[in-house]
Design a protein around this nucleic acid. Sequence first.
DNA 1: CCTGCGGTGGGAAACGGTTCGAAGACGCCC
DNA 2: GGGCGTCTTCGAACCGTTTCCCACCGCAGG
Lengths: 347, 347
Amino acid sequence: MGNGSKTPKNGRNAPTIADVAERAGVGIGTVSRVINNSPAVRPETRAKVQAVMEELGYVPNPHARRIAGGRSYTVSVLLPFVGTEFYLRLLEGIEAELGEQRYDLALFPLLSKQRLERFLSSSALAYHTDGLIVASYDLAERFPGGRLPTDRPVVMVDARSEAYDSAYLDNALGGRLAAEHLLALGGPVFAVQIEEELDRAFASTVFSARIGGFREALAQAGVPLPEDHVFRTRLSAEGGQIALQRFLELQRPPLNVFAAADVVALGVVEAAERSGLEVGREVRVLGFDGQPWTATRGLSTLEQPVETMGRAAARMLIERLQGTKGPPRHERFEPRLVVRASTQIGS
Amino acid sequence: MGNGSKTPKNGRNAPTIADVAERAGVGIGTVSRVINNSPAVRPETRAKVQAVMEELGYVPNPHARRIAGGRSYTVSVLLPFVGTEFYLRLLEGIEAELGEQRYDLALFPLLSKQRLERFLSSSALAYHTDGLIVASYDLAERFPGGRLPTDRPVVMVDARSEAYDSAYLDNALGGRLAAEHLLALGGPVFAVQIEEELDRAFASTVFSARIGGFREALAQAGVPLPEDHVFRTRLSAEGGQIALQRFLELQRPPLNVFAAADVVALGVVEAAERSGLEVGREVRVLGFDGQPWTATRGLSTLEQPVETMGRAAARMLIERLQGTKGPPRHERFEPRLVVRASTQIGS
DNA sequence: CCTGCGGTGGGAAACGGTTCGAAGACGCCC
DNA sequence: GGGCGTCTTCGAACCGTTTCCCACCGCAGG
């Protein structure tokens, strides 16, 4: 096996920093500096090196980076193990921001508490990462001292934490906006609440915050929400279908329904259509999340800036990784009411 | 900051192989051989080294292993992004087997096709692992040539693939067993089928195989299954609730329901209880999966040896990693009927 | 013309492991 | 007693990066 002939193609042995250096006629240190955006490189040199990297398809080996530099340029993202589009969008945002800073991410689905603890303590995993982004759960509060047993920086997203930086949505505000909107339409108001035990391992509070804000705004307007106007279900479209059935037993159309999540709102719409009721007139439905498909289904919703929140979280983490000190910072985001056919008479 | 005093505790700087070697009075090569179960170590030496490793809390750095040895002793597990207990159990099995061989795993939730392709091609991730275990989807068939674009070994679990080793359950057999059992009870038979688009990114075939076997066995017994005796829903307990509602519109109790998944069967049970019907007599319910909680809920089910399948998949992968050649091997597993109160008259 | 200095670039050392050639210890045989 | 395997063990070399020290360059100032 003479290794005289280079095989820099996407084959078994990838090109190394030495290959790049040689081909570009510079030293390995210079290549490293280019990779790490060090300012101490002349623009022409940088361009030349980058061209060679491109040509050779060079990608720095993260394991080597980790071992040499102490950092892996990788962050772990801990996310609930539920299949919703929300997390897809959130990751989109996180990844966009991390990518610009040449960071990678490793996903860690939160399947069980046991697994989480193994992840955090036993260091044997592939998750030897520089920092953590935790989505949707305030994991910190379930550990003694209110802090995760790790010395790496942590940022919360879609959740607020006292102990760590966080980027979160004002869910209660969303509930209040929902109340205002539905009240303006006139007619009785109902709500679909969602069980917090998302995946029977961890509990989130977003849904109760949404319904809480809703209830509060209604009360302030002098229209309290009766208990039987609230239906609780697990997170599924079918739960929304059942909810509307119940509501129709109590009340003849027209009626207004606020669902704490778009998926559930979709079920309400499905059930209405199946019952031959006109959505937007006889049954008005307002969801929450702003999932992409709500536009084509004509579903009114409270849109949250998911990608933006993801980016914000990633940015905060990177700043911490670069040494920023100081008390936890919190970025608050607001949902935006998007009115579509499902809460508008006719088209 | 004199570093004269060692801090081998679980602090910032973990002990290295050199620390262990020094403390044990051996060379680093010997320590490495102990770590890797090389036979060329005297038992007493091995014991001594292991004692020191224990004492120091030494864990080999996977990045260093990867860089030095070419392997990372880590395998990726690709799994659908749905929050079911099935995957928890599957991972339990996989992890048990891998752990015995000193391998770690990195989870990769299959959120979208786009993300999968990035994972497989762009090598920049932390997922520089030695092999892949793919759960539930025959991902291979969606790539040109019917093979994943990777040269690392691949094993399928809970799915069968022509191109790769696989450990899978005979779902059709489960359906047939279900049919036999329900027929023996007497009375009309219904089925709840589940949408294959588990998480709207990838499609699985397990549910249609289950219902397929069910239908086939019924037909053979001369009791074909009418179309309106099959209700389709997404995977959720509420879907089961709605299904029973529909069935009760067509048929007065007693009736028998086979649900293609335990979660859905649970919904059927819930709906029956809410309607004041006696489960096991007026409504008989049979699930599929053998989730741990079925025991306490008295739900009859087709139990699958999930952990065992996971172990089998991991074992096959490790063998491949150790150089085993040859055509794809397939391990077939069979579900086992567990009869409980939900398909038994009285207690 | 010499000196000093900021801006660049080169490459040795280090990171924490694996691997492999070499060497020591020991027992056996002639 | 010397020759020769076998069984263990040692530690240097290496994996692909980062980091740091030093050298070099060109230019302004004395």
